[in-house]
């Protein structure tokens, strides 16, 4: 004869087939009948179906929820195009080498600058993992300056890098049309990586009178 303990174990294990000994026990034991009914209910609830979201659900809701990245990019490109048309002195898009997997990778660097006014030089650093307390140093050549930092050539600061894209924007002012390179160094827990962001000026661009000559951006 089956006892309640055995009956409940059988109920927990039971898939589809009815066990005749178990059924006999349930017939005479009200408590186990209650248990069996509750188990049936919970099993039905636990497997209650729900429809899958429609196609591209994740992409759609994220795109709608996040600030309009596409329009921001468009705006930036538009501004860049307008600036080019107005004879911006240089605009460089440089593809830089990747780091080893444990260190950040420099994906792309987009720079915009002008002699007459400071324009943002944007560098996107793609870190493979979050890096707390990374030290970022920037070394500027003689012919470049950072808006608001006077003649300071060396700048260094500590920050946390997030996993993924991190954007550095430097308000660069160029003082001549020579080829320049900004050295950016990132240090984290003893590891160190340096890379140069080239900034090319078209010939004669350093002369305000010749600004109209540089009508197209250069790509390196």
């Amino acid at each position: 004869m089956m006892n309640c303990c055995q009956a409940r174990r059988e109920l927990d294990l039971m898939q589809r087939e009815n066990n005749s000994v178990l059924l006999k026990h349930l017939h005479r034991c009200g408590e186990c009948r209650e248990y069996a009914e509750e188990l049936r209910l919970v099993n039905l609830l636990r497997t209650m179906p729900a429809p899958q979201p429609s196609e591209y659900f994740e992409e759609r809701v994220l795109k709608a929820a996040l600030p309009k990245r596409s329009s921001a990019v468009h705006g930036s490109v538009r501004k860049w195009q307008l600036a080019t048309a107005a004879s911006v002195l240089f605009a460089v898009i440089a593809a830089l080498p990747q780091w080893q997997s444990s260190a950040p990778t420099v994906e792309t660097a987009m720079m915009q600058a002008a002699i007459s006014q400071a324009l943002p030089v944007r560098v996107s650093v793609d870190a493979a993992r979050a890096m707390e307390g990374a030290v970022i140093s920037v070394s500027l050549p003689e012919h470049l300056a950072l808006e608001g930092y006077g003649d300071q050539r060396e700048l260094s600061w500590r920050t946390n890098l997030s996993a993924g894209a991190n954007r550095l924007t430097l308000p660069v002012r160029a003082r001549s049309g020579q080829r320049n390179e900004i050295l950016i160094r990132i240090e984290h827990e003893g590891a160190r990586k340096e890379f140069y962001v080239p900034v090319d000026l078209p010939a004669g661009a350093e002369l305000p009178a010749n600004n109209d000559a540089a009508s197209t951006p250069q790509t390196i």
Binding site: Q52, P53, F57, E58, V61, L62, L66, P67, R69, A72, S124, I136, V138, L155, W157, R158, T159, S162, A163, G164, A165, N166, R167, L168, T169, L170
Partner: peptide, 27 residues
């Protein structure tokens, strides 16, 4: 410069990485 560094793109990527695994459950 630190404020310059933490750009919008990084924030969006962080947000996406955090919530994306839970979107179907939320739905």
């Amino acid at each position: 410069l630190i404020e310059f560094f933490r750009g919008k793109a990084a924030k969006e990527d962080r947000f996406t990485a955090l919530v994306r695994p839970h979107l179907r459950l939320m739905h």
